[in-house]
Design a protein around this nucleic acid. Sequence first.
DNA 1: AGATTAAGTCTTTTT
DNA 2: GACTTAATCT
Length: 728
Amino acid sequence: MPISAKFNDLTASQKEAVSHFEGPLLVIAGPGSGKTRVIINRIAALIAQGVSPWNICAITFTNKAAEEMRNRVVAMNTPAGTHVSTFHSLCVRVLRYHGSHVGVGSNFSIYDDSEQTKCMKEALKTLNLDTTNFTPGKLLEAISLLKNKLEYPDAFAARASDYFSKIVAKAYKAYQHLLTQNNAVDFDDLLMKTAVLLRDFPAVREELSNRYKFLLVDEYQDTNHAQYAIARCIALGHGNICVTGDPDQSIYRWRGADIANILAFEKDWPSAKVVKLEENFRSAPNILALADKLIAANTSRKAKRLIPVIPHPGEVIIRQYEDEAYEADSIISDIARLAKNGVPYSDIAVFYRVNSMSRPIEEALVRSRLPYQVVRGVEFYGRKEIKDMLAYCKLIVNPPDDVALTRIINSPTRGIGDTTLEKVAAHARMHNLPLYEALKQTFAVTSLSQAVRTKIAAFVAMIEQFKPLAAGPVAPLMKKVFEDSGMQKSLEAGGLEGSAALDNVEELINAAAIYDQQIDNPALYDYLQQIALFSDTDKFDPASGKIALMSLHAAKGLEFKHVYIIGLQQGILPHERSKDNPDELEEERRLLFVGITRAKKGLHIAYTRHRTIRGLLMRSIPSQFLYELGASDLPSRDSFLAESSRDFNDFRDDYIADLPSRTMQTPAPSSASKKAPFTTDELVEHKVFGLGRIKSYTDMGENSIVAVRFNSGQTKTLMVKYANLKKV
DNA sequence: AGATTAAGTCTTTTT
DNA sequence: GACTTAATCT
């Protein structure tokens, strides 16, 4: 009954996407096109057609999106049973039952970034490699890409020819060996092992294919090869695969996302039907025009329309400020203006390219006493006290987890130091035992004193005493761990810092209590595997009544009435590490496109004349994207800069009285601005950097920039009007 | 063993 | 500037 009612609210193309039940379907959905609604309606429609909810599997990009979708499916009075989760969560489930085929025990630990690094360091130690040139992080990055491509260590070793690849191959093999010993997987393993499992074990593939007769994958433009392979394997038997996405919103290339997956969907599934959702129900027409103008600058792109549905123009402001403090103060006073006009705080968001940029904004918000929430990657789960608690828990359910054990064996301190641990580790290596097993055999390690043996025995006894509780509810066990381990005591003695840590652990235990209530058979291993995939992004609460601060990446999939995007300057957006690579530059542009298209009514883009980066005050070069944004209701490029500086001066006068201690920097005279453009390879001289050759010249009027490779070896990007380059 | 201090490293985005 | 590691002191 409610299903057909909803149908009437849909546009023609939305209906088409909802009611094409059988076979492959590609939904190219622009921003604000009601894509999520289409997916929900599609699930409801499938069920109305007689499909069992148990046979439907919807994949979302984040846990948050999954949770929201589950709620919305329920809200449509749809019978329960539809599986909605991320790829990673689905993989956890699959590996729990079938992991033994690919060397994964059911109680496996999931390693996060820092645990991966620890593991890699350990692996490198056994290899005796000189790692001065290859940090664990660099190696892990390379390995991550290999795993995304489903390449196993031996296969890669066979084709590794250059020096770096050979090192990577060795590290990969040792690292993977260590993970297996610890019965642990990293994020990429979850995907790779599942993909390999489905590829090489037809029985498992069939089981999954029979279970999930209808597969939906959202944000398909950001799937990597492993995810692509998993989806394909599940759908191969029946062809009922519906993917939705927008190539213009692909922003996870650095994580292995392959935009080719969505571009090649029609080739993979020749019978695929394609539906385009080009109408935008979210943003004001002038905001959309701006977004369209920007994304048009991407050359490797199929043109797509953004058709505004909302008739009323919104407010678009692009403005320059002196530095990040003025930027923040101005934005906050603008927010205060909105609030005075009745705009709820939860309708307002501030986006930035890197998380560290939240700080000046936060400081200004605190000064103004405005409520806000910062959405950040893994802040909570990265805290020491939380990691310690989870390490205890991991060790309880998965004793071979040496990484967890070494983390907590002496935290809080219990007199088992590095020397002792090394002796036990030597014994473990000799007999090929996990560390925890070796701890039980201290009688065999003659070099240990009796006092130390007693301490170790007490530790082992404590862990053993926790084990029987792991099959029950999680919260009581955590509480017991917290008390018996001595963590609580040590934090209570830790002053202010300790009391903050106490609060965090309390929050963790509360979350566990909620889990205990929600799940029929709560178990520690299940809880641990679930929260390993959580991030703080999942904690964003749109109904909190607070201003939201987040990175542009975290903004994906969200919408706000008023959006502020800060730091539109070269080196930040586009980011320093992306601006020299054309593909990465296009992704930066898509990132800004995502940010702009989050805004419904108001869009405020800010950049500064100067900005403190890593403690150094730097002169900022306006982002090249600002020039690409030239929408019709904006001033032209030249007047645009003149006008924005006039705005700034008015603004500055107001603030100078308030902030007398801030020193103002006046720009250098722009005498060089009319200089003829430079040509590539031209020899120039700079006052500080000396002689160099022009690498590139970008014409941006009086703000033109050059990249110069100096004889010192370093390459600098400079603004022509400030650099005072002399032609030689 | 453990705490404190000094020096050194690295700085994007996140499941 | 934030964080990790190494060196030194208690």
